[in-house]
Structure formats: C-alpha cells, structure tokens
C-alpha cells in the first residue's frame, strides 16, 4: 500500500465513522422522542373522530383507535365519505374496521393500544 492509497482509505474510514455516528445519533433521538403518550378527547356519541395522527372509531360502544396514516404512503386520513374512511392523497378506502376496501392500500390501518379513562372522556395512547 502506498501513501496515497493509505490516505484514501483513511478518508473512507472517516466517512464511515460519520455514518456510524449518524446512525447512532438518529436512533437515540428517535427513541427519545417517540416514546411518548397522548391523550385524545373521547366523544362517546361520535362514531368516527379524526385527530392529526389517530382515528377513533366507536362502533357498538367499543372504541378502537387506528393510526390515521394511510398504510399506502402515510397520508393523514381526515374524512369519512358514505361510511368509508378515505385517503385524500391516492384515494384508498378503508371500512370502519380499518380494513382496506379499495386500493392502492392493501394493508389494514394499524390499530393502536389504548386505555379508556374511568370517566370515559379520554383515551390514552402510548406510542
């Protein structure tokens, strides 16, 4: 190995170490910020309630909370048309069980673990 090759390898090593730092940094940052809980206002009378990141579906008095982001590309689903949840970006449709009934999405909406407050006014979500 000549001197030039040695320094080229050195540069590559430095870049690689930055990739390593980058990966570690973002991973920890993500872990720190994503471990948080949210409290959503729960309206028992409402069949479907939209929030920025969640949809509460209250059929038959048993609320289910879905991730509001479409399983196709993550657009926020913020409306219901004729009893169907509609993604505004590419037109995927989901029923109130979160199941896709029209593509391009083919996966069901992610159901989130929740806890209903004792007075049934809030839903606690931990992500």
């Amino acid at each position: 190995m000549n001197r030039r090759n040695f320094f080229e390898l050195g540069v590559f090593g430095v870049l690689l170490s930055f990739v390593f730092f980058w990966r570690k940094l973002t991973f920890l940052n993500t872990t720190l910020l994503y471990s948080r809980s949210q409290k959503l206002l729960y309206n028992k009378n409402k069949i479907v309630a939209f929030f920025d990141d969640f949809i509460i579906v209250n059929k038959d008095g048993e609320p289910k909370v879905f991730n509001a982001h479409c399983t196709h590309l993550g657009c926020s689903i913020n409306k219901m048309e004729n009893g169907v949840l509609v993604c505004p970006c590419h037109g995927s449709h989901f029923n109130l069980e979160g199941e896709p009934i029209k593509g391009p999405a083919y996966k069901s909406l992610e159901q989130v673990d929740t806890e209903l407050s004792a007075d049934e006014k809030y839903i606690q979500i931990t992500t």
Binding site: W22, T26, N29, T30, L73, C75
Partner: peptide, 29 residues
C-alpha cells in the same frame, strides 16, 4: 403536510437505513 407524510413513509420503507433517513431529513416531530 400530506407530501411530508408521503416522503416519510417512502423513507421508512427503505431497508436498514429508512428510519435514519426519515429522521435526518424530516426530523421526528
């Protein structure tokens, strides 16, 4: 806002480095 979600979703779909890419470009919050 919807475009941001699309980019995030696409980035997260990339194997191994998806989350890192998404966080690095868009941030976490």
């Amino acid at each position: 806002m919807q475009a941001r979600q699309i980019i995030k979703s696409l980035s997260l779909g990339i194997p191994f480095i998806g989350e890192t890419l998404s966080t690095s470009f868009l941030g976490n919050g």
